[in-house]
Design a protein around this nucleic acid. Sequence first.
DNA 1: CGCTATGTTGGGAGCGCTAACAGTGCAGGT
DNA 2: ACCTGCACTGTTAGCGCTCCCAACATAGCG
Lengths: 333, 333
Amino acid sequence: MSSRQPTLDEVAELAGVSRGTVSRVLNNHPHVSKKALEAVRAAIDELGYVPSAAARSLATQRRGAVVLAISSDDPALFANQFFAEVIAGVNAVIEESDLELLLVMAATERGRDRLTRILQSRGADGVMLLALRENDPLAKVAEGGGIPVVYGGRPLERAPQHYIDADNRGGAREAAEYLIASGRRAIATITGPQDMHVGVSRYLGFREALALAGLPAHRVVHADFSEAGGAAAMEQLLDEHPDLDAVFVASDAMAASALRVLRERGRRVPEDVAVVGFNDIVTAQHTHPALTTVRQPIEALGREMTRMLLRLINDEKPTPLILPTHLVIRESA
Amino acid sequence: MSSRQPTLDEVAELAGVSRGTVSRVLNNHPHVSKKALEAVRAAIDELGYVPSAAARSLATQRRGAVVLAISSDDPALFANQFFAEVIAGVNAVIEESDLELLLVMAATERGRDRLTRILQSRGADGVMLLALRENDPLAKVAEGGGIPVVYGGRPLERAPQHYIDADNRGGAREAAEYLIASGRRAIATITGPQDMHVGVSRYLGFREALALAGLPAHRVVHADFSEAGGAAAMEQLLDEHPDLDAVFVASDAMAASALRVLRERGRRVPEDVAVVGFNDIVTAQHTHPALTTVRQPIEALGREMTRMLLRLINDEKPTPLILPTHLVIRESA
DNA sequence: CGCTATGTTGGGAGCGCTAACAGTGCAGGT
DNA sequence: ACCTGCACTGTTAGCGCTCCCAACATAGCG
């Protein structure tokens, strides 16, 4: 291995042209003669030349990288399949561009500082933000960076200029409608945190469906998307509303726990109580009974976030996008 | 927001010192007078100065970033909780350093090219490689980059110089020993791919335990870690060895499917057939019955890979590390 | 008191690239 | 023949930082 990489000047010398011409070839500028172009290409091949990213970004003032920032105070969320899928989607688009992907998990104060540093030092050309809670400081950090920002899932307080979201409300409505259509009347729900837009939307969709059917929607326990929270909520629901015959649970992780609690409490699923979850994580296929749930296109979310960011970087003006969800019917409802 | 970031020269001017001195302060060099140091710090605060990453790496010839490269031809693997956990571990260590994390998923040919480019353009100071199959071209790409390389899970063909691995063999042995200790005698196994080190090691540990107990180890079907593969393997096992009273399955994803097949085939778990999986993914807690499995410290794997890489970058000479695994007993065995 | 070790500083020379500018040669129009 | 316009090319400044060297104090030593 050569310890030193060849530079543009060496390519220029070997090709018998000036640095400027080599640079033009590298950046596909017009007005390069065929002869020069070929000579430069040959020289590049011969030397195995690869331009220095650092030098280029110093000269152009852009970085050739975007950051995917994930905010969470809950480490369990990281170990979540959700992020893995989003990342896969992001990567799929990134792979087609010639940008690099910087991953920043800003769980701690330190993490946020790091993100700030990266943004301020012009360390990226754009940011994608995931999983923001209300007034997440990350949002301010990102917006202060002076570079394009795309949100995945909109923050609660206000709709940001650029975001991609799943149709949480519609999905929840569909789930509840399905429960109603299959004859359930005492329908409960375990919601997500009400300080997250996704938690609120799913609750909203649920209530819409019940209201439309003239059904009461008072069987509600708010939880936090976690397994433990889901279990506790299910217990509470059973205590407060022993008559319930269906539960719409705002996340599969909580639904899986709810299933366990129902079994422990002697309720048969779906005979006594129907259960519908949300997200369609892989676990949903392996619960017993298999979980009926609302599928959201997580990978597509990642893909579309990235596409939107690339457009933004390219000075286009994309509009927010809501991705469709749909009900996956298995055994639990 | 100011559209232009302040530069080091402006800091120098405001502080009334030279560029060199500011640079010294920034990099914690000794031999800076207290007075100069304070003046510089004040100027930095006042201007909100953040050094330019690009300029710095051009000057220092290092990038301040490491890459985590994930190789897989199976997109499903991406959506795997495993990667999410590794990433969380990697991030935990990265967060303490002042490096950035570049994520490259090199699924396609294009992805590999990208990785090559990044490495050749000195786009990173080190690489971590995950999930390598036999003769994965990524390995050559990485080693050719002239920068430190750490493997997560060792490739089959040869032990690389620097790697972290889980004790797959020991974990498999422990699982089989547990099955034996609980009185099972007709023990089968569904293995992982035999062209991956992890697949081979788990099979090896299994055979060791059976040999030690004087039990035959001929009830074997090789599979590919996937759910579909696990189901097919379980069917085949049941067809070929209807007498089996226990199965050691080399991954939880396969084990979850095996559980379903067993139920469909009318075998009770664990009464008729005991099942032990491997990995302890979250799903393992939600299968019915809950899956007894071998837990490997995935997040620790990510952490230790990163620590090792940082040492390497720092010119230390770390030795390979094998992380312990342990059996988590639930209901299926 | 001269002389050396040591701490502290400023200034210059790059790092490898892009981009603006100023040519050069050559075609075509008058 | 002249001038204009165009395609192409070389040259020159930077981009914002680090690092080295020389310069200067200052202090300690004989």
